[in-house]
């Protein structure tokens, strides 16, 4: 009897673990199948066509893709230096009594739902952008900034973790030789933890590009590529969030599914690069 239960338990844990892989494969398959209509209708043009006109049954993803790329790029541009600054502050500058509370509050802020960041952006940040740059205040620039603020706690926390992998003995040796804190950061921590730091930043990028709620409030969902950063724009997640429940034709739906597939492939690739290239876990013994 015991042996039967034993086998059954082992077997069911294995099946469940394998089903994780199955679900992921299933996600890709389902999204691909539902994209087929759109892929057949537009082919490769879907990726380079700038027109998104549901009433004409014409769908091009370029504005959404560019929007995702630009808003994420802006967010990274703003968040990376600050996150690195925060990480240096937490690992080398802050008094040890300050490290824990500041570190924990940053981790807690990373747990606040992104929809709250989006709401804050809409009510408190959009008016500021409107006053400075004119126009509506919603658009690429606002989305980039709100996204930067939203991703900052996560980015700072993982970057700090990466920096903290540097063995104390290395740092202490450098300090003993008379190195300043900056010397230690530049010549010890960064060379030692380089892969981890870059990996953390790319991981944050992977999260930012798929982030929906922080940007949906402040992007405007206008399918137009504009050189004016303060003009309303769109991105893949913003389009999905706004239009999925409004789609009324098969082709419209299919195009939205193709957008989801594109987004999944992009973020899967970015996260995989971060993971496999930079954050390769050391095999446990």
């Amino acid at each position: 009897m015991g042996i039967v239960i034993d086998k059954l338990f082992a077997f069911s844990t294995k099946i469940i673990a394998l089903s994780i892989l199955l679900i992921v494969a299933w996600i890709f398959t389902v999204l691909f199948q539902h994209s087929l209509d759109s892929i057949n209708a537009f082919g490769f043009d879907f990726l380079v066509e700038t027109k998104w006109a549901p009433n004409l049954e014409k769908f091009g993803a370029l504005p959404a893709i560019t929007g995702s790329v630009i808003s994420t790029f802006l967010a990274m541009l703003l968040a990376v230096p600050i996150a690195i600054g925060v990480a240096i502050f937490l690992s080398e500058i802050a008094h040890h009594r300050l490290k824990a509370p500041v570190g924990v509050s940053i981790e807690l802020l990373a747990a606040i739902p992104s929809v709250v960041y989006g709401m804050w952006g809409l009510f408190y940040f959009v008016p500021i952008v409107r006053d400075i740059f004119g126009g509506l205040g919603i658009g690429m620039l606002t989305a980039g900034i709100v996204l930067a603020i939203m991703i900052l706690p996560f980015m700072a926390a993982v970057t700090r973790d990466a920096m903290n992998t540097t063995p104390d003995i290395l740092k202490e040796s450098a300090y003993a030789l008379g190195a300043t804190k900056w010397d230690v950061v530049k010549n010890i921590i960064i060379p030692y933890a380089k892969a981890g730091i870059i990996g953390s930043l790319i991981l944050a990028l992977g999260r930012a590009i798929g982030e929906t709620m922080a940007v949906t409030f402040v992007m405007g969902n206008v399918h137009k590529i504009s050189t004016d950063l303060s003009a309303p724009a769109t991105s893949i997640p913003v389009t999905l969030a706004n239009e999925f429940t409004e789609a009324d034709t098969d082709l419209y739906f299919s195009s939205l599914f193709e957008l989801s597939l594109i987004l999944l492939v992009i973020s899967f690739t970015i996260i995989s690069i971060a993971k496999f290239y930079f954050l390769r876990r050391k095999r446990r013994l």
Binding site: W26, I209, G210
Partner: peptide, 12 residues
């Protein structure tokens, strides 16, 4: 999957 876009899971 922990970092994959959650809106795509919604679409799925």
């Amino acid at each position: 999957m922990m970092s994959a876009p959650s809106i795509v899971i919604g679409a799925f």
